[in-house]
């Protein structure tokens, strides 16, 4: 039950398609739901998380707001390249609380996870926390 996506474990966001400097993508990995990364218009949006090592991934939890269609891809390379689809999910809309979604995956290994937000329930979507269980 190690949360390998926390920045304190050496995981980092290596790419994000949009950024408000008050809401940087690092906020996704700081383990808090109070801080968030906010998309700044148009879809799709994506961010890529790099792990310090090749990690086993069996459960991914996402705290977000107004995300509709999410696809998660992975690779096992040193570069953020050549991704394979790992999971795809349509989140339900929430009104006054964050969306909390647990996505079970096959327990295979990954060095990068790519989160592709294909659509949203609003122009802007936020991601507050991503955690990963081995």
């Amino acid at each position: 039950m190690i949360n390998t996506a926390l920045s304190s474990f050496g995981a980092q966001v290596v790419l994000a398609t949009s950024s408000d400097e008050n809401h940087p993508p690092e906020n996704i990995l700081d383990g808090k739901t109070e801080t968030f990364w906010l998309s700044t218009g148009m879809f799709p949006q994506e961010f890529i998380i790099r792990f310090p090592d090749n990690m086993k991934v069996s459960l991914i939890s996402v705290h977000s707001f107004n995300v509709k269609h999410l696809r998660i891809e992975k690779n096992t390379l040193e570069e953020a390249d050549k991704f394979q689809v790992m999971a795809e999910k349509e989140f339900e809309q929430t009104e006054n609380s964050l969306q909390t979604n647990d996505i079970s995956v096959d327990g295979s290994h990954a060095t990068h996870l790519r989160f592709l937000i294909i659509s949203g329930y609003d122009h802007f979507v936020s991601v507050h926390k991503v955690s990963v269980e081995a």
């Binding site: 809401h23 109070e34 801080t35 968030f36 707001f65 006054n96 609380s97 964050l98 122009h123 802007f124």
Partner: peptide, 10 residues
């Protein structure tokens, strides 16, 4: 507006 609204959620 959205940013402020989301800020109250976390």
């Amino acid at each position: 507006e959205r940013r402020q609204m989301i800020q109250t959620l976390g």
